[in-house]
Amino acid sequence: DAPVELVMVLDTTGSMSGTKLTTLKTAATSLVDKLTVGGTANVKIGVVPFAQYVNVGIANRSQPWISVPDDYSTSTTTPGKCTTVSTKTTCQTETYACTKYTDGVAYASTCSRSINCVTTPITPVTTCTQDKINTNTYKFSGCVGSPAYPKNVSDSDSTRVYPGFMNLTCATPITPLTKTVSTVKAAITALTATGDTYIPSGLAWGFNMLSSAQPLTDAAVYDPSGQNRKPRKAMVLMTDGANSKLMNAGNGRHDVNPTPNLDSPATQANTYTAELCANIKAQKIEVFTVAFSVTDTNIKSILKTCATDDAHYFDATDTAKLLDAFQNIADALRNLYIAR
């Protein structure tokens, strides 16, 4: 008679692409299988993929807790013009080793540049273009930002409104709490890797999912005693990197790059992450955190503090340890679930 509500808040940033994302899908699916092996009558599971933003789904655009305009189009005309070319430039291409970045993580790559360029005269050639009509379409794909502080770190203000953004793509849509295992597994299978890291976005929607108040209302109310934990609410936060974006307080976007020696590391985002963790635990939500191949000591410390206790924190330094971490979390949830 002690139902379980579990939300998996999963990092799907660009640095998770390839083997890391494949392993995450296996680990998360295994957790679902183990937790539901005896049936799903008392088990609800939700999934919150996150990167720079969270996708709440297009179907929610008319909800009172989101602010987003209708899709629209604009047209502009580019006048035609004539251009005369009387020279030609030829260059050689040189390749060289360089460093590139994905989601703030450096990797070795190859870059190219033009060298030994020579410009020579040619017989003038004139080309003309016609007027061109340009149509720009603006659509909402489900991606939302954050309300202003402190509403962005709380679940207690029913008036908070999340800004929705046009022509922005982000993670796959969230899957609210459900007893349907096939729905949860389909959500895990659909995960894709893209974007930068803004952990508060994922945490906030995991919090929303476990709260019975708007914007999501599938969860049961918190146990008023805080002792019996009926229902037992749990969250799994998995990330493979540090916050690499800051929130723009003016519009709720998570598009501000940390400035070296000022916001680097992403102090504001780290502060919001820590506050969200504290507020989540204050509601007696059990928090498991998993640092997957994380090298940033600052965010690892934040994740360890975010967990309910040391036994709820996992430092998964490779794919094998990620699988083990999710198995251990499943065992912890399953054993106490059976005991109750």
Rank of each mutant, 00 (worst) to 15 (best):
L21M: 04
L21H: 03
L21Q: 04
L21S: 02
T22A: 00
T22E: 05
T22Q: 01
T22C: 05
T22G: 04
T22R: 01
T22Y: 00
T22W: 03
T22S: 03
T22H: 00
T23V: 05
T23H: 01
T23Q: 00
T23C: 06
T23G: 00
T23Y: 04
L24H: 02
L24I: 07
L24K: 02
L24A: 02
L24D: 06
L24R: 01
L24M: 02
L24W: 00
K25C: 02
K25W: 01
K25T: 03
T26R: 05
T26V: 08
T26D: 06
T26K: 03
T26N: 07
T26S: 08
T26Y: 06
T26F: 01
A27I: 02
A27G: 05
A27Q: 10
A27F: 00
A27C: 06
A28Y: 04
A28W: 00
A28N: 00
T29Y: 10
T29D: 12
T29Q: 15
T29C: 11
T29W: 14
T29R: 06
S30Y: 08
S30Q: 10
S30N: 08
S30A: 06
S30K: 14
S30R: 13
S30H: 07
L31S: 09
L31W: 15
L31K: 14
V32N: 04
V32C: 06
V32P: 05
V32E: 08
D33P: 11
D33S: 15
K34Y: 11
K34G: 12
L35N: 05
L35W: 08
L35K: 11
L35A: 11
L35E: 04
L35V: 12
T36S: 05
T36M: 03
T36Y: 02
T36E: 05
T36P: 01
V37H: 11
G38C: 13
G38M: 07
G38V: 11
G38Y: 09
G38F: 10
G38E: 10
G39H: 15
G39I: 13
G39R: 14
G39L: 12
G39V: 13
G39M: 13
G39D: 14
T40P: 01
T40Y: 02
T40R: 05
T40D: 05
T40H: 01
T40A: 01
T40G: 07
A41E: 15
A41V: 06
N42Y: 04
N42R: 03
N42F: 10
N42T: 10
N42D: 14
V43S: 08
V43C: 01
V43P: 01
V43H: 00
V43L: 00
K44S: 06
K44H: 02
K44A: 04
K44M: 06
K44W: 10
K44V: 04
K44G: 00
K44F: 11
I45W: 12
I45T: 13
G46C: 10
G46D: 09
G46N: 09
G46K: 07
G46Y: 09
G46T: 07
V47C: 13
V47M: 12
V47W: 07
V47R: 02
V47E: 14
V47K: 04
V48C: 11
V48T: 15
V48W: 03
V48L: 08
V48Y: 02
P49I: 08
P49K: 05
P49M: 10
F50R: 11
F50N: 15
F50G: 15
F50V: 14
F50D: 12
F50L: 14
F50I: 13
A51S: 15
A51E: 03
A51I: 03
A51P: 14
A51K: 10
A51W: 03
A51F: 05
